[in-house]
Amino acid sequence: MSLDKEKIKHVAKLARISVDEAKVDSLTKDLNSIFKFIEQLNELNTDKVEPLTSILNQSLRSRKDEISDGKIREKILKNSPKKNEEFFVVPKVVE
């Protein structure tokens, strides 16, 4: 299977990454060589194999549903590139 430029632009859209038109060709070439490498897996018959979903022989722990911290709004907002006293600020979404 090979990836064409349109497909790559679509995937980039899904990933929310704008792709420079000038770089699409080299990106297409790189991704195709990587997928060719990945597709070696098709040589293997895995019909009877269970997928591995966890390498730990334990199930994930659950914790009590209770609040363990909070009141740290300042800390949470501290690294935001754009904010006011209480909120993150984003470009206008609703007219």
């Binding site: 990945i38 897996l41 098709n42 293997l44 895995t46 194999v49 269970e50 997928p51 591995l52 390498i55």
Partner: peptide
């Protein structure tokens, strides 16, 4: 075709 396949092969490697 990809992710599920990889998880299966990961099982074989383990």
């Amino acid at each position: 075709a990809y992710y599920l396949k990889a998880q299966k092969v990961r099982q074989l490697i383990k």
